[in-house]
Simulated scan of single mutants.
Amino acid sequence: MNPDVEADLNELSATLGNIEAVLDLDGLRAQVAELEEQAAKPDLWDDQEKAQQVTSQLAHRQGDLRRVTGLRSRLDDLGVLYELAEDEGDAGSLAEADTERGKLRAEIASLEVRTLLSGEYDERDALITVRAEAGGVDAADFAEMLLRMYSRWAERHGYPVDVYDTSYAEEAGIKSATFRVKAPYAYGTLSVEQGTHRLVRISPFDNQGRRQTSFAGVEVVPVVESADHVDIDEKDLRVDVYRSSGPGGQGVNTTDSAVRLTHIPTGIVVSCQNERSQLQNKATAMAVLQAKLLERKRQEDREKMDALKDSGSSWGNQMRNYVLHPYQMVKDLRTEHEVGNPSAVLDGEIDDFIEAGIRWRRQTQN
């Protein structure tokens, strides 16, 4: 076998071996067996929330196991393919093997990033809020572009998205939107998207065609679970009900079913209008509020621990530029990762940015 190819295959095998050790394949198989046992119980769906949790975890663990064992099998087969191709002098088979090696390298690198997600809440669903910031109508339009970007990213991966609340701007775009991405490790994966995003372009809303800079903020928190125990005193809540509305103030329904909760001690405001029932909207809004309060507590605890240490990783700072004029580029200011195709990025192709962000975060934490 070609020495360079052999060295590359050995390196890929070593990387995959590290991944297998981190994922603990024996432990993973035991988890799958236990979850399969729970899923087979006849009374599983008596508690729908628990049933959904069990089936989701089972599908996720089975997927992890299939993915890593499949990569190992393909890597073993690839070594055999190279040997046969070289023995027979088959240029077509060699080209096929080279293509497979490139695919394996990318898939193993992607899986390696997943093993870096070891935070307390990384396995959970993500609750994301996108807000228009400085820049007027362009900022509202940019916020809607980011909402679409994350929705398209989730769609590409087959992850369900629930939009809890959208506040539309008067002329175009949105003031804010809150949505949930339902996928294993969604929080750990998307948390690196938190921060201020900046757009530079010729404004479609400026009749003189001037260049405009606008900003949108992205907040990412983990979805709370019943074990988190975020206690909220009813006396600390102000509850407002109102009629759900769509773009341009168009009524979505004819009853006051939308709910806005204000947590008086912290000033946190959340709302939900995606359900027909006021009771359902209040329950969903309460879950969002609990998630935000949990994240606030986590941030406060982290700030206390980091009080004497400047980590240089303030999430509130500008973290990515999207330039549509005078040139085409998207650049992450933390990782230096950049691409020259903003339209693809805004259409949801952000995996490279996310993976670079996860690696950068791990390096800054070490």
Rank of each mutant, 00 (worst) to 15 (best):
P3K: 13
D4Q: 14
E11R: 12
A21Q: 14
L25H: 01
L25P: 04
E34M: 15
E34T: 13
L35M: 00
L35E: 03
L35Y: 03
E36D: 15
E37H: 13
A39W: 05
K41C: 05
D43I: 06
L44R: 04
L44I: 07
D47H: 10
A51W: 01
Q52M: 12
Q53V: 04
Q57F: 04
D64M: 15
R67M: 09
G70K: 09
L71A: 08
L75D: 00
E83M: 11
E88P: 00
L94H: 03
G102R: 05
L104Y: 11
E120C: 06
D125N: 15
L127F: 05
A132N: 03
A143H: 02
L146A: 06
L146N: 02
L146I: 12
R152S: 09
R152F: 05
A154P: 05
R156G: 09
Y159P: 00
P160H: 10
P160N: 09
T166P: 04
S167V: 13
S167Y: 06
Y168R: 02
E170H: 07
G173K: 01
I174H: 00
S176A: 13
T189Q: 13
E193P: 06
R198M: 08
V200W: 02
F205Y: 11
D206C: 01
R210H: 02
R210Y: 00
Q212I: 02
F215D: 01
V220I: 06
P222H: 11
V223F: 00
E225Q: 14
D228K: 04
I232W: 05
E234D: 15
R238A: 13
R243A: 07
S244D: 07
G251V: 13
T255W: 03
A258K: 01
A258Q: 01
T266I: 09
G267Y: 00
E275K: 10
Q280Y: 09
A283Y: 04
E295C: 13
K304N: 12
K304C: 08
M305D: 14
S311I: 08
N317D: 12
P326G: 11
P326E: 10
M329Y: 00
D332K: 01
H337Y: 15
G340E: 12
P342I: 01
P342V: 01
A344S: 13
V345T: 05
V345E: 05
E349A: 15
G357Q: 05
W360T: 02
